Amino acid sequence: MIPVPSGVRVWLATGSTDMRLGMPGLALRVQETLGRNPHAGDLYVFRGRRGDLIKVLWHDGLGMSLYARRLERGRFIWPSPADGVVALSAAQLGYLLEGIDWRHPQRTWRPELAG
């Protein structure tokens, strides 16, 4: 799990990204396409074309980290490119990483009585 500190902003890069890109290529994409500073401490999340792989780019002040997550089944829920850059909360990022629809998380039903 990514140790997301409180107050960190999470940005989704809508559309698909070439997953062959590493830290320098994704940082350049953040700078040129998203118009943001990749070294500012925010998390940037990218999804591949098939939808089962995401990469998270993060600069924590000491260095840049690149995290990857692949789903065994299913696809990550992703906004359309028309939405532009989408901001998420840390809780929504947790849902996304678990493969849960972060836009409309559903509470599971729990019984109120044992019998």
Rank of each mutant, 00 (worst) to 15 (best):
P105Q: 06
W78A: 02
L34H: 07
V45M: 05
Y44V: 05
A114C: 15
A90T: 10
N37E: 14
R73F: 06
A87V: 15
G61V: 07
A91H: 14
G35H: 10
Y44D: 00
R9A: 13
Y67W: 11
L62H: 13
A87I: 13
P111N: 15
P24Q: 11
I100S: 02
H59D: 06
S6L: 02
V10Y: 00
Q92A: 09
L28Q: 12
M19C: 10
D18I: 11
G15I: 06
R49A: 10
A82H: 14
P81A: 15
P111W: 14
L113G: 03
K55R: 12
R50P: 06
G94R: 06
L26I: 08
L12I: 05
M19F: 12
V45T: 08
V8D: 04
A91V: 15
S65N: 14
L26Y: 08
D83H: 14
P5L: 03
R75T: 13
L57E: 00
L21A: 14
L26P: 00
D60V: 02
A40D: 15
M19E: 11
R69L: 04
F76W: 00
G84T: 08
G35V: 07
W78R: 01
V4F: 01
S80A: 15
E98R: 11
L97T: 04
R75C: 12
A68N: 11
R103F: 07
L21R: 14
G25N: 12
R107T: 08
M1I: 12
E72G: 09
Q92L: 04
N37R: 11
S65V: 05
P81S: 14
G35N: 10
P5M: 01
V86F: 08
D52V: 02
W78S: 01
L26A: 02
W102T: 01
T108H: 14
L53C: 08
G99A: 04
V4E: 03
R36V: 05
L53T: 08
T14K: 00
G48S: 11
W11N: 08
V85Q: 02
G84R: 12
I100G: 00
L53Q: 10
R103E: 07
G35I: 06
L62G: 13
T17I: 09
F46C: 02
G84M: 12
S16N: 11
G99V: 00
W58Y: 12
A40R: 14
L93R: 00
A27N: 04
F46R: 03
A91N: 13
V45Y: 01
P3N: 07
R36E: 12
A13Y: 05
N37T: 10
L66Y: 00
R29C: 03
L88A: 04
A13F: 01
G51V: 09
D60F: 03
M64A: 10
P79K: 10
A87F: 13
